Computed example of a mutant assay.
Amino acid sequence: MIRSVGLSSNGHVDSAAPRRAGSEDAQAVADLLIRSRRAAVDAIPAAVHPDNEVREWIRAVVIPEREVWLMENAGSRPLAVLVLDDDWVDQLYVDPAFTGRGFGSRLIEFAKSRRPAGLQLWTFATNTGAQRFYLRHGFSVAEATDGSGNEEKAPDIRFVWTAPP
């Protein structure tokens, strides 16, 4: 599988494929997730876990127990990460310096190819950009909650995608 992603002359992602992350990628995956969440502070609640706990969770749980896929630049720096947990899109983050260039779209379409029976995910009710993104990619709203079931205690929305017949 191709390891790196080239950018076209307009700064968008070319046709390179995602690469499965391994244990050696745990630090870079955690750094990308932390950096992306911080940059989205106006759209999503602040993280409830300190950075060291996030890094340990990525190393000990996410990488060994879930499917983690990376889009990287030519220097092997992760630009976007997708975490699949069964039929859940558990995490989808794009480096804040590279949003709007097609990385998220490539990864969500890749997730659909990995889970053709369907996908589901949660997004915060305040994250209207993510909601537009998922609706644009064929997801629909399945339910909305008051947030009492998530760690941030923030209202959220569950989206589902089912392949067309």
Rank of each mutant, 00 (worst) to 15 (best):
S4N: 01
A43E: 13
A39D: 05
G129V: 10
R38A: 10
S148F: 11
A39I: 00
V83H: 15
P165E: 15
N52A: 14
P165F: 14
M71W: 02
V89M: 04
P155F: 11
S23N: 05
I108L: 05
D90V: 06
E67K: 07
A163V: 10
W161C: 03
E24V: 11
Y134W: 06
R101T: 13
E151N: 14
V94C: 14
A17T: 14
A40Q: 12
A47C: 05
Q120P: 05
G104K: 07
V89C: 05
A17Y: 10
V48D: 01
E143A: 09
F124L: 12
A142K: 13
G75N: 06
G147P: 11
K112V: 03
D14H: 08
W122S: 07
D42Y: 01
G22I: 09
A117G: 12
A39S: 12
A163R: 15
D25V: 10
A154W: 11
E72C: 12
P164L: 11
G147M: 15
G102H: 04
A80H: 08
L7T: 06
P96W: 14
A39F: 00
Q120I: 02
N10C: 03
S36Q: 08
P96T: 10
K153D: 03
P78A: 08
D25K: 13
A46T: 03
V89W: 00
A97I: 08
K153A: 03
R3M: 14
N10R: 03
L32Q: 05
N73E: 04
A17E: 14
S23D: 02
E24R: 10
Q131G: 10
A30P: 06
L107E: 00
E151A: 14
V68D: 04
L92Y: 15
A17G: 06
L79I: 12
A21M: 14
R19H: 08
D51T: 11
I58S: 02
H12L: 09
D86P: 03
D86R: 11
N127R: 10
G129R: 14
P78L: 08
K153M: 06
V61Q: 10
D95Q: 01
R37D: 01
F110M: 01
A40N: 12
D95A: 10
V81A: 15
E109W: 08
I63G: 04
A80F: 07
A60P: 02
Q91H: 07
A40D: 11
L119A: 01
M71D: 04
L107N: 07
